[in-house]
Design a protein around this nucleic acid. Structure first.
Lengths: 192, 192
DNA sequence: ACCAATCTGGATCGATCTGTCCAGAACCCG
DNA sequence: CGGGTTCTGGACAGATCGATCCAGATTGGT
């Protein structure tokens, strides 16, 4: 047909994810996106449409990757309580392992764009639902094996756990010491 | 001495708070700040220094106002559990009453600037500490009057509650229906 | 080998950004 | 009432923004 692309679109998208994750949507310039992806402006716009379209695709890619990681975690044979602790600490490990202690890109997007872009909002809501479903699966496992409370349904507990881990990520942005965050996870688990 | 100011600095600062709250630091232009405050560029820069300085002052003003509101809540004579529910729902009422369902300016600032500005970071951390202290006071009241669990210390429970309410605010940015958020508050209270 | 189609580099556009600067207006004090 | 000081409006500077456009390079199909 014609001249083929000299770059891999998904590799470029991965670089864009990192940019948006670092700086958010507004503060990431198209120049920076060209630099990090290695594409010229023409190629960038030709491949992804606009900065906003690229942002949406970056969010979808990030969400898909997260969903895969969650499936991996569920494949272990830990009891419910132990697995729940792994789930919570894994999220925080990722954040504290990063120099800038970035919050999950989804949280950043919730705060920055919120409901102002319906497609983005839907992507964020879908991802949040997936994450809560995964947490609910873990809680259900714990309720069945007796390691977690059944004073509330798995879905109800998952909503609380999801909120708590998101809030702890926000806190981790400004805390210097991780101990209080880990303590909060332990306290939360003692309540379950 | 000389010509006096033709505007009230705190009124202007209040307008700036609203701008930054609406759009964050980066997406709020100095033109918009001039428009909402009614000041010319000269007056704005003369009074507040720079956009970044104005942002810091806006955050400090917002934090001071929040701290006053918290003191008011503590002055009621509800039992600990009832007061805790009021505290949590008050935060969410404020958000859901807003058309854009803005998250607390402090959360926005945590996500957007994080630790990249040490003065801002300190202001955010101080405010978070204040809020947690207030929650701990409420929990302590509930532990003394027997309406709340003492399976963990008040400080430990406050850390969990603070994280949860922050996470629920993030969720509220993209949820269309408030019920799941209220349900999460109820579930959280059943665990205490 | 040549045509048609796509991709790419880079210049460029118009808008917008933060911050500065200066001339003149407004005021207090003596 | 006048002098010295501060405030104010608006023009301006210099940089950067997202997006477009076009000429030329590169390819597959015939």
């Amino acid at each position: 047909m014609a001249r083929p692309r000299s770059f891999d679109a998904d590799t470029a998208l991965a670089a864009a994810v990192d940019d948006f994750w670092d700086s958010g949507y507004g503060a990431t310039s198209t120049d920076e996106l060209c630099r990090s992806t290695g594409l010229s402006r023409s190629s960038l716009y030709n491949a992804f449409g606009s900065k906003r379209d690229l942002y949406l695709q970056a969010i979808l890619r990030y969400a898909a990757e997260k969903q895969g990681q969650r499936a991996d975690l569920l494949a272990t044979d830990l009891d419910g309580r132990a697995l729940l602790r792994v789930v919570l600490t894994t999220v925080l490990d990722e954040q504290w392992g990063d120099d800038d202690r970035r919050t999950c890109l989804m949280i950043n997007a919730c705060v920055e764009v919120g409901s102002s872009d319906e497609e983005v909002r839907r992507a964020l809501a879908d991802n949040a639902d997936d994450f809560r479903r995964m947490i609910a699966d873990v809680v259900r496992r714990g309720q069945l094996d007796g390691s977690l409370t059944d004073r509330a349904t798995a879905d109800q507990l998952a909503a609380v756990l999801h909120a708590a881990v998101d809030g702890l990520q926000v806190r981790s942005r400004i805390d210097r010491d991780r101990d209080p965050v880990d303590d909060a996870v332990s306290t939360l688990l003692t309540l379950l």
